[in-house]
Amino acid sequence: MAKLMPKRQLENVGLGITGLCVALVALVVVTLIVMVAQQGLTTFFVDGVNPVEFLTGQNWIPEQERYGALPMIVGSFAVTLLSTVFALPVAVGSAIFVVEVAPGFGRRVFQPFIELLVGIPSVVYGVLGLYVINSLMRAAFGDPAGTGAGILSGSIVLAVMILPTITTLSMDALRAVPNQYREGSYALGCTRWQTVWHVVLKSALPSLMTAVILGMTRAFGETLAVQMVIGGVERSMPSGLLDPASTLTAALTAGLSNATSGSVYYHALWSLGLILLVMSLVFILIIHLIGKKGAKANG
């Protein structure tokens, strides 16, 4: 029989191996942040693009060396907010139904169903958007819709994509509300709807907000589905919901293959990436703040 390693040593080996894995992940993340920041800031510090003009400029025309990211920033926020507005009532509504009204049905039927939506790849959503939603837009709005590509169709596709995220997280949030709260409310003679509205939703509010923010994070970072549907116009500001537009992610996808590395255009694209990175850090921060506040409110 092989001699066994002394236990303390074995414990240190375990600690070492697993610690190494974590360190590797952390290192990659740090490298990513440093690299994106370095490349993205080159635009401003080396290529001499004014950062204020970059963020507020309304035209993105690389051939003319005009780098105004506002159209994409507006596009990203517009699709994110719109899709959240579309998805939120449906998501929270279905979460309430499957947790408060029909829990058995929720677990056995609804949850697997909604998880199917998570599984559908984003290019497939893109294909649906490109060939189906855009034609519907044309059919609904006629000429003003142009090809059908635009912020509205992008938002609709995104709404479907973030629906499962918000729904499942809302379901978890509602399930986490202690049953005593409900029983207390029913004991006072409240109806189910009153209980849900005044008691359950109120105490689940921080978690519901986290669910929404996570949904928005997904919408903001979603790439191909939006890029295929939104029309890809970065040159100028969109003037309406039916106008073709672009988002940060879409502009990156479309631009990166054409840009020669080291050029101003290339660096400007990395600056867009930097904005995306900063935004996802902001989203994380918001989630943490909500969590802290919720913890404080619940003692």
Partner: peptide
């Protein structure tokens, strides 16, 4: 926090980083 950051990064940013790194 690092793992959480990774989970919320848009995949295009990951792709972009990969294309360089």
């Amino acid at each position: 926090t690092a793992i959480e950051t990774l989970s919320s990064l848009p995949s295009i940013v990951v792709g972009m980083f990969g294309s360089l790194f």
